[in-house]
């Protein structure tokens, strides 16, 4: 890894540790190994959103050409959001692509992601299914996102109605995550989800 990249990451690492966001427990960065090429990010779900109370982990890969090219960031925690793939965790955010500027830091990236969670951009979706639900059935979207936060990110809102439906599919021999995905996709319409799973 080249000199500038290592120097930068070391410095940024300190910046995040010192930052007031860490004191408020809203963002955090951890090293994986000691190469400074792979890091683990952590963001708290922003308040007054379906993600509130959840903790989301990120995989951050620092390229050789950092900071002239953006870091590669992906959600490790499953999340229901229009701009984040519900399957792979890939993120659609301009600053992680062509709008990246060398003067940006890991801290600004994490804060931008937090802002993205609070204000989705459904017209520029990563996950078309989620984006459609976000636009057409905002209430179902909020409930689904909150349910996913509860299950995968340790959020507080349990939804027993959803759990019952998932259990019905599990009884039919479907795996839990797959059942949740299908039900979420079909706006928790048990019949349509079943139809799709068995077709």
């Amino acid at each position: 890894m080249n000199n500038i990249a290592t120097q930068r990451i070391k410095r940024e690492f300190k910046e995040v540790i010192k930052s007031e966001e860490l004191a408020k427990c809203s963002i955090k960065v951890d090293l994986i190994g000691d190469s400074y090429t792979e890091l683990k990010g952590e963001i708290a779900g922003p308040p007054d959103t379906p993600y509130e109370g959840g903790t989301f982990f990120l995989e951050i890969k620092v390229p050789e050409t950092y900071p002239f090219n953006p870091p590669k960031v992906r959600f490790m925690t499953k999340i229901w959001h229009p701009n984040i793939s519900s399957v792979t965790g890939a993120i659609c955010l301009d600053i992680l692509k062509d709008q990246w500027a060398a003067a940006m830091t890991l801290r600004t990236v994490l804060l931008s992601l937090q802002a993205l969670m609070a204000a989705a951009e459904p017209d520029d979706p990563q996950d078309a299914v989620v984006a459609k639900q976000y636009k057409e059935y905002p209430e179902i979207f909020a409930k689904t996102a909150s349910h996913w936060t509860n299950v995968y990110a340790g959020g507080p809102n349990k939804n027993s109605d959803f759990d019952t439906k998932i259990q019905r599919l599990i009884d039919m021999g479907i795996e839990r995550d797959q059942a949740r995905g299908a039900l979420s996709t079909y706006n928790w319409d048990l019949e349509r989800a079943t139809e799709q799973l068995f077709s």
């Binding site: 500038i4 120097q7 930068r8 410095r11 900071p67 003067a103």
Partner: peptide, 9 residues
């Protein structure tokens, strides 16, 4: 005292 904001060195 100048620290370049990109390479921070």
């Amino acid at each position: 005292k100048f620290v370049c904001p990109v390479c921070v060195g």
